[in-house]
Amino acid sequence: MSDWTWEHDPDDLLAGLPPEAIAELDRLAREIATRDSMIFLEGAAHSGDVPGLRRESRGRLMVSYLTDVRAERIVIVQVTWFG
């Protein structure tokens, strides 16, 4: 299991989203964090380039996120729910 985490920025990013959207976001963000932990194995010791803004979608959910390799986390910066 990955020790990587996820968070969102800004703090009110999830305001107004229905519970099903937040649950799907949690599942997707955990999967992305796990995948990135397998790509960037050195984590905090990483000294190379990092990916820029990326997007991923699943069903009615689309997210934009950044991978903060050195902090071993992903940061969700935009959420779109087509519900």
Rank of each mutant, 00 (worst) to 15 (best):
V50E: 15
D11H: 07
S2A: 11
R30K: 15
R30G: 12
D3T: 04
A23H: 11
R54A: 12
G52M: 07
G16Q: 14
R30S: 14
A21M: 09
I39Q: 14
T80L: 08
G83V: 03
R35Y: 14
Y65I: 03
T34D: 15
A23W: 06
D26A: 12
H8M: 10
R54D: 13
R60G: 05
M62A: 13
M1K: 04
I74C: 06
P51G: 04
D49I: 03
V79T: 10
V77E: 14
P10G: 09
T5S: 13
P18H: 07
R55G: 03
H8G: 08
D49P: 08
W6P: 01
D12E: 15
G52F: 07
V50I: 12
T34K: 14
L25D: 01
T5I: 03
G48M: 02
F82S: 14
Q78K: 12
A15N: 13
V75R: 15
A15W: 07
S64V: 00
V63I: 15
L41Y: 10
M1L: 04
I76C: 08
D9L: 06
D12L: 06
L13D: 12
L66N: 09
R73G: 03
A33L: 07
V63N: 02
M62S: 14
M1F: 00
I76Q: 01
W4E: 02
A71D: 14
E7H: 11
H46S: 05
A29L: 14
G83E: 13
A23E: 15
S37K: 02
S64E: 15
M62P: 01
T67R: 07
I39H: 11
W4N: 00
P51Y: 04
D36I: 00
G83L: 09
A45K: 10
V63T: 08
Q78V: 00
W4C: 02
R54F: 03
G48S: 05
M38T: 09
G52V: 07
L13F: 09
A33K: 02
T5P: 01
E72G: 05
A33P: 04
R60M: 08
T67K: 03
A29E: 04
H8P: 01
E42M: 06
G52N: 13
I39S: 10
I22S: 13
R55Q: 13
M62H: 08
R73Y: 06
S2V: 07
P10F: 08
I32Y: 10
R35H: 14
T67L: 05
A44N: 10
M1T: 04
F40T: 03
P51R: 09
Q78P: 00
D12G: 06
G83N: 11
P18C: 07
L14R: 13
D26M: 03
D11F: 01
D9I: 05
P18D: 09
D11P: 06
S57Y: 01
A33W: 01
L28R: 07
G48L: 01
E42A: 09
D68W: 03
F82G: 08
L13H: 11
P18W: 07
M62Y: 02
R27M: 09
S37F: 01
V63H: 02
G59R: 06
M62F: 00
L13C: 12
E72F: 04
S47C: 02
V77P: 04
P51A: 08
T5G: 06
R58S: 13
V77R: 11
I76M: 11
V75I: 15
E72C: 08
L14D: 11
A33Y: 04
L28Q: 14
F82R: 15
I74H: 01
T80S: 10
L13W: 11
V69K: 02
A15S: 13
A71R: 15
T80N: 13
